[in-house]
Design a protein around this nucleic acid. Sequence first.
DNA 1: CTGAAAGCGCTTACAG
DNA 2: CTGAAAGCGCTTACAG
Lengths: 329, 329
Amino acid sequence: MITINDIAKLAGVSRTTVSRVINNSGYISEKSRKRVMDAIAETGFVPSQHAKSLRTKQTKIIGVILPKISTDTSSRTVDGMTEVFEAQGYQILLTRTNLDREKEIEHLRLLQNRQVDGIILIATNTSQELVDEIKDSKVPVVVVGQEIHDVPSIIFDDYAAARHMTQLMIEKGRRHIGYIGVDEEDRSVGVLRKQGYTDAMAAHGLHMEDAWIQKGDFSIDSGYAAMERMMLASYERLDAVFAATDRMGLGAWKYLKRHGFDIPGDIAVVGIGASETSHFIDPALTTIEYAHAQAGRESALVMLQVLQDEKEFCDKKVLDFNLVERDSL
Amino acid sequence: MITINDIAKLAGVSRTTVSRVINNSGYISEKSRKRVMDAIAETGFVPSQHAKSLRTKQTKIIGVILPKISTDTSSRTVDGMTEVFEAQGYQILLTRTNLDREKEIEHLRLLQNRQVDGIILIATNTSQELVDEIKDSKVPVVVVGQEIHDVPSIIFDDYAAARHMTQLMIEKGRRHIGYIGVDEEDRSVGVLRKQGYTDAMAAHGLHMEDAWIQKGDFSIDSGYAAMERMMLASYERLDAVFAATDRMGLGAWKYLKRHGFDIPGDIAVVGIGASETSHFIDPALTTIEYAHAQAGRESALVMLQVLQDEKEFCDKKVLDFNLVERDSL
DNA sequence: CTGAAAGCGCTTACAG
DNA sequence: CTGAAAGCGCTTACAG
């Protein structure tokens, strides 16, 4: 391995000088600079980031914890983050939890070992353990998708979005509206979206059967199964179903198509997420678009800010949503 | 920051001893171990990975270079890699090139600075510069998606897949078959798939008009535009179109639907990739499934092997493909 | 404009 | 079973 010492020797200067030209800091004569540059070019020397980090306590690496890699939500978010980090010379260390809550905590620890400068967590719950772990973190943490008190968070207005969507269905004359949600440990998706739905229903004096509220696990298949349970168990005839995520909505959609229902004639299907697939199916899914790429960008921006100012930036940032009316309602 | 020295002091032992218990190496009395463990628990000490890497020359981080983050191909591949790396305690440093060839080279360099243990490159070209850069790399490189001589590569049999698909169209009675490809700098997708198509056509003595062969840039929109050009410029009536990727196929499909063509009655559309969306559209896209997750897993396995044996593992591995017949042909 | 020296937090022969 | 010491490759006051 070739080191700064080799370059110093080759260029006939001290390693201090080499360090200066590498980092472009302090005064340096043109002559020295050139000799060092030549030596570097000749040898293909690249400075060791570890030695550097050991001194400077800075790695220019941001750890990112995601629930799943292969979903539209994750990839759009990461895409947005990459955009701003790249321009600042930061890189991203990626880990996934596969929706395992324990792993969120485990990865939070692991990433600190890696001495990342900061951690962005796409969170799926707000358990006390998680909160404690975040608060104990030696490096700044920014959370996306869940609101955590005293921690900078980028969130969407899940309650308003779900309420808005439910309202829309009611305005369009739907009365018997089912709901496919997720576990309530996920506050944003499991609690707030559901509440938006139930509140809107209640506000209009609409009754909900127990069987109308089903749970999935974010997957397409679970949406399919939830839809099936709903149809089999419900006493009154449903005329609409609201899935908390597009993927589960897709599953419901598939079940209904396969069983000969007319969408939206017999029953409407709507989701949240504006996934790519939701746009191409026929009838195309009415859904709500979240600006995931923007959430990624914002989270990166906030991280950069915290990193620079050192001051605790504890705000939350609520991003807009956008109703995408298509043909399934 | 709390360091190994603090622990040593607290536990009343030398830092050598602390190092031993951290790494579980060498003999150690139960008494010493316990005192060190207690001190660690009490302080929440985590060893600096940088200091460690500086000594051991090992980081347990693998750099991954992707063209795009938010595509099914990338996310499935990364998902597969993560699966095997995670079990071995490796983590992934992610970078994307946005299909910019220069960035592939730039990131190759950047990642070496980061002192990653190895680099997995999802390549989109096989230019001499890229090959040179790979050969110069100080850390092992594994390539996915392109075959590069003397570098371990995980590839798909693009030629056979495309030829097979074209054959199928011909067997089904199609004679006027258009093709939407990509730039030929991409050997796998741009050259081999196209050749599979032209060879199959030629083998059956089928004529191809110039206008039948169009290029896109992997995006859905580019597929749409290519389809449009093809329809406008071609003299004879097409009865099928083969897109080199599902995304472009989706674009073509959209164009045809929007312009009132019956798929597959008037014209068949097929692709390669088995993207999620391709399955849900109506008519569902006939396509070829590549085992991307497996490619990810294999690439990780090969990397681990190279890392352990230190011996140059220069084989290429060709993964199977799988025809998925649906309704668009 | 330049260099000698200390130090970042670890690991690893070596000696006991 | 344990510790003193050297060294990994850098950066950064400090002195000149």
